[in-house]
Design a protein around this nucleic acid. Sequence first.
DNA 1: CGGCATCCAAATCGATACTG
DNA 2: CAGTATCGATTTGGATGCCG
Lengths: 117, 117
Amino acid sequence: MTANPIQCKVTDALNTVVGKWKPTILLNLHFKGTMRFSELMNNIPDITQKMLTSQLRELEKEDLIVRVVYPQIPPKVEYSISEHGKTLQPIFDMLHEWGVTHLEHMHTNTVEALEVK
Amino acid sequence: MTANPIQCKVTDALNTVVGKWKPTILLNLHFKGTMRFSELMNNIPDITQKMLTSQLRELEKEDLIVRVVYPQIPPKVEYSISEHGKTLQPIFDMLHEWGVTHLEHMHTNTVEALEVK
DNA sequence: CGGCATCCAAATCGATACTG
DNA sequence: CAGTATCGATTTGGATGCCG
């Protein structure tokens, strides 16, 4: 990571946001607001407890989400997007739009390739 | 990936762009234009031939870069950003800005935490 | 309920050797 | 020069069991 100065921070930004489940977690919290651990489990099919826990810890360290523990039995833990985490929203919006366009683009290319046949 | 419709394409977009070296490759090609395989190797420290090759193949499949082979000896292969790949540029710009802000934010928090001590 | 610890499987990455 | 092939190491993810 040397060549151009701009490089450095792009990958840094990506590294804080990627990880198999991080975008999904952030988007869930964005749309549904505060959620409990079990709610996240239910809303993210196929994720395991271990993965959810570890990804939440990392997001917390990066100050993208807030973790609130209620000292009671049974335990209750709530997660929500931090103020700082909300600054990611415009980027997600752009990524979503680009994703849609990209899929259309790839689909078009495939169809064209088939038609040439 | 069920809950909210927007989720799907965000992760799709991220998946096409991430990968340990993909952003670096794309940024190099963006800033320096067309580059040969060996030039990329020289400009991306620590990357191995294997990684560079595989990442280039994936980027090519996703139509983000163009690969041109000159049938000569010794071989010459040039890579450049595709028209479609150029549409990623605004996203990289945003990611870079966010990355800078994020690093500042994290640094500020660390300093505050130390001062509280 | 919301974890952590452990063990195991799979994907990813790196080093090396070889080729047209 | 620009790869391919192979092997081994590292990283990552999943399954299970246990705990306050």
